[in-house]
Write a protein that binds this DNA or RNA. Structure first.
Length: 478
RNA sequence: GUCCCCAUCGUCUAGCUCGGUCUAGGACACCAGAUUUUCAUUCUGGCGACAGGGGUUCAAAUCCCCUUGGGGACGCCA
């Protein structure tokens, strides 16, 4: 049997780390199992859903390399895949549930429900719906209707308990008396999340649901609803949530980082995918760096961990660096230029230096950055307007004498090439007693304006004679 | 409040299914040394954990119970 999984985001914001990992695990597992992946847009919350975000979902998933077989954009035989286009299907399902007595009209108003909920919470009772409209007589229903009250529709929860076997968590038992009848159709006849999910998972023949653990306690509702509609419930696998620094929830708060932010920063998608895969899953051995293909080959649900993980930017950066370092020079240049071009055509300022120079300069930083936006900072080395980081170090007499010597040397030397730096150092060592850090640090600071960077021997030739002399003169003027 | 889920270094995790091979392994971060006549990179080494308490057992990180801590759900949000 071919397995069918789905990723079902609601387009109410940009795809964040947590959602992306859920999408990734679905994708990896479907690939591994040679199954099918559905992308479904859950836009039943008309207030908050926006087309802009929906488009962003496609873009971000594609950027990550997550592919789907069926979806609103690509079609498929179980469509439409946008819930807002399936309203009549939901309505029909609710009608049959009502006919079969599995659901009923509820005339309770939102404000009173809220009031009751608050009160229950205060008195320490479970704030669930008390099912009061379940026993309304036909006359009572007609009366309320006649008064113009629009009803919502609630699904009847049966008695007893429900046990389910979660692929990650094992057997979980719920006492159904603790769950109130829940709304499946709003008074305006639009479906709620619970209804839409169940109808769609059923109709779209989803066999496995991999989703966030925040849905675990919704699962008994879903299984009951699915069964009431005559569907065989899928297998569930609930992924633990990804937390922010300190263990606080990541997904709903300020710290929630969107995939887009990382894209904008110039992280490589395969690096992000690699890091995300390590959050809640491990291959079982010491391997940590994976290509997307490699992940598709080894990923398994059995090795998904139960406990939640904290998103660690340091480790992401390390993984990102590893991926960057594995690129060939050519691949690196292509990607770096691609990014820099999309980011305000950053490199155009340096066009005058020539294509060769640009390549050499970019290559200089290949082994020290984790994302391409860092290049913009690094290129301050070549920016005439760059401000010297630690001026104080250049103030003392000894250092000024050193720099004056350096200036003399450069002005006398007409040629400026690969060998110039070595010659300069030779000359300076003869004229001063400085060596090691005392020699290199001031020179680095004077020539590059920064405290750190690639080795001076390689950086120096790229700076150019004019810039070096200009910087020295500026420092010595005071 | 009630129900559900979770619990190994600061962080991500291996080990738990089948208790002994675990003086608990790896990685990130951190610290130190080496390399780089500087910083960064790289390399080597170090620091560092079975949440607590009871059981069961010859033996428990591994099985059971309780406590504590964290998270989730209890929405006409998804």
């Amino acid at each position: 049997m071919t397995i069918r999984v789905r990723f079902a985001p609601s387009p109410t914001g940009y795809l964040h780390i947590g959602n992306a990992r859920t999408a990734l695990f679905n994708y990896l597992w479907a690939s591994r199992m040679k199954g099918e992946m559905i992308l479904r847009i859950e836009d039943t919350d008309f207030e908050r859903s926006r087309k802009e975000y929906e488009d962003a979902v496609y873009e971000d998933l594609k950027w990550l390399g997550i592919k789907w077989n069926e979806g609103p954009d690509s079609g498929g035989k179980y469509g439409p895949y946008r819930q807002s286009e399936r309203l009549d299907i939901y309505k029909e399902k609710v009608d049959s549930l009502l006919r079969e007595g599995r659901a009923y009209y509820c005339f309770c108003q939102q404000d009173e429900l809220e009031k009751r909920r608050e009160e229950a919470l205060k008195t320490g009772k479970p704030p669930r719906y008390d099912n009061r409209c379940r026993s309304l007589s036909q006359k009572e229903i007609d009366d309320r209707r006649a008064r113009g009250i629009k009803p919502s529709v609630r699904f009847k929860i049966r008695e007893g308990e429900l046990r389910l076997t979660d692929l990650i968590r094992g057997e979980v038992v719920f006492d159904l008396s603790l769950i109130g009848d829940f709304i499946i159709l709003r008074p305006d006849e639009t479906p709620t999340f619970h209804l839409a999910v169940c109808v769609d998972d059923g109709l779209m023949k989803v066999t496995h649901v991999l989703r966030g653990e925040d849905h675990l306690s919704n699962t008994p509702r879903h299984i009951l609803l699915l069964e009431a509609m005559g569907f065989r419930p899928p297998q569930y696998a609930h992924l633990s949530l990804i937390m922010g620094p300190g263990g606080s929830p990541l997904s709903k708060r300020l710290g929630a980082r969107s995939i887009r932010e990382y894209r904008t920063l110039g992280y490589m998608p395969e690096a992000l995918v690699n890091y995300l895969s390590l959050l809640g899953w491990s291959p079982g051995d010491d391997r940590e760096i994976f290509t997307p293909d490699g992940l598709e080959r080894v990923f398994s649900i059995e090795r998904v961990i139960k406990s939640s993980a904290i998103f660690d930017k340091d480790k992401l950066n390390w993984v990102a660096g590893q991926h960057l370092r594995r690129l060939t020079g050519e691949e690196y240049l292509a990607r770096a230029k691609d990014f820099l071009k999309s980011d305000g055509d950053f490199l155009s300022v340096f066009k005058g230096r020539g294509d060769k120079w640009i390549d050499r300069a970019l290559l200089l930083f290949k082994d020290s950055i984790v994302c391409f936006s860092e290049l913009k900072v690094k290129f301050a080395f070549f920016d005439e307007a760059a401000v010297i980081e630690d001026k104080g170090i250049l103030e003392n007499a000894e250092t000024r004498a050193l720099l004056a010597e350096a200036l003399n040397f450069l002005e006398a030397e007409k040629a400026f090439n690969e060998g110039t730096f070595a010659a300069l150092i030779d000359s300076l060592k003869k004229k001063t007693t400085l060596k090691g850090k005392a020699l290199y640090h001031p020179l680095r600071l004077a020539f590059t304006a920064k405290n750190e960077g690639p080795e001076l021997v390689s950086l120096f030739p790229l700076l150019g004679r004019d810039l070096c002399i200009k910087r020295l003169k500026e420092i010595l003027r005071k």
